[in-house]
Design a binder for these strands. Structure first.
Lengths: 234, 234
DNA sequence: TAATGTATTAACCAAACATTAACATAGAGG
DNA sequence: CCTCTATGTTAATGTTTGGTTAATACATTA
């Protein structure tokens, strides 16, 4: 049976950048519809169903935020990602250039965007559906299989994860590059949020950090008083 | 259903400038009604509902301040922006001319006005709706992510912000180019307005200034006895 | 019941944070 | 120009939060 790809609406006024990003996303197995301004974007949104919208914030005639509001009025569920700072675009472009000759093998900067996209979609689908569709995660050079509770690092013996380790890492991966609130992990994994469970969680964060040391590009950052953020550099 | 744009009443006696500014605002996705003097402005104000009024201060028959008073009597909520010195007009004109052949890509001076308008609108909408999902701000060369609490300057390591630093900078950004009253930050962020919280705030202003030193075009100005103003020069 | 894997709790230290104090400087008004 | 108040700045303090290791408790299975 033919599995259909996830569909992305990409709204970007910079034609050159838009085309490149579209190519890149399509190479990564997404169906992409590109609109070159807010109005066209909204028209296309109304005519089809999408799994994700990527909106440039700075656009003439109708900016990304305004478009997002319109989209929200039509559909309260669809995930929306903003392309904000120039830096991000530049990263993607740079990544594209770097990877152009060998993009299938080398990891490059725009993978951050890709990772975020995947994580967001997965979060959405795990919110609506109780049964988690996906249980495999790429975290830098690591590969996490959260069903078998294995964390693989190429060359090394697979690391067996305990149930708590596994759930916590999975939760972090689900929020890759984004804030994973303390309270979320505590209520979802520990089913209780108090001083002791919180300390317990810290212990597990330390354990995960130890495992993840193998790849210096992978880090669990703390956001004081808020939670943690799994980041994959480069 | 088509969502309607924000509506702006623009009162400007200089026909040429008024038309250009109107065009510029419309290109930025606002609905604009142009009146060419204070009396016409008030008539048009009474006949419709606006999200913002932009009033030229220097006008024959009825100056901007007088008009503003009348408008305020009718409506205590609507944001009012004054066009004061020539400099700003010249900036916009200059910007428009410079950008005329290439305005989609190059940033130009009138973006300050646009920034102000957007900040004002945003403030209004965040007053009414608590679910303001807006947490990314461009401040000169800096990029503030107030959800992850970091301040990025291209080339440097991201600066982690403490909760108070973060909220204060966000508040200043919300009032870009405009007065951010002391009392507002104190009541909203410190939830108390006394001598000590006020001194605490000054300490945080000093901290932010230190961070913002990287970009000489970004400054936090003090307005004696009133508050602070975040400005982005050039 | 020993062995093993797992989770919690304790204890201690380090980092992050907000406040307060102290002193210097700038602005407003007489 | 003088005085009073507001602001700029740095440092000291106390508190909360997080990082880490080890000890303990618990659970599962051999």
């Amino acid at each position: 049976m033919e599995k259909e790809n996830k569909k992305i609406l990409l709204v970007e006024d910079d034609q050159n950048f838009g085309a490149i990003l579209k190519d890149y996303l399509m190479l990564n197995d997404f169906d992409v519809v590109l609109a070159k301004n807010g109005m066209e974007g909204f028209e296309k949104f109304k005519k089809d169903t999408y799994d994700l919208c990527i909106l440039d914030v700075m656009m003439p005639y109708k900016d990304g935020y305004t478009l997002a509001k319109e989209i929200r009025e039509k559909n309260k569920e669809v995930p929306i990602v903003f392309l904000t700072a120039k830096t991000m675009k530049e990263d993607v472009l740079k990544g594209y250039k770097v990877g152009a000759d060998d993009y299938l093998n080398k990891p490059f900067d725009s993978e951050v965007l890709l990772m975020k996209i995947k994580a967001i979609m997965q979060r959405k689908s795990s919110e609506t559906k109780a049964e988690n569709v996906q249980f495999e995660f790429q975290i830098g050079k690591f590969h996490l299989n959260s069903k078998l509770r294995f964390l693989n690092f190429p060359g090394n013996e697979p690391i067996k994860l305990s149930p708590k380790e596994n759930e916590l890492l999975k939760m972090l991966a689900l929020y890759v590059e984004d804030l994973m609130p303390r309270e979320l992990a505590l209520t979802k994994i520990w089913r209780d949020d108090n001083y002791f469970t919180s300390r317990s969680m810290d212990v597990y964060i330390a354990k995960l950090r130890k495992y993840l040391k193998e790849d210096p590009n992978v880090e669990i950052l703390n956001i004081h008083g808020e939670g943690f953020r799994l980041v994959v550099k480069k």
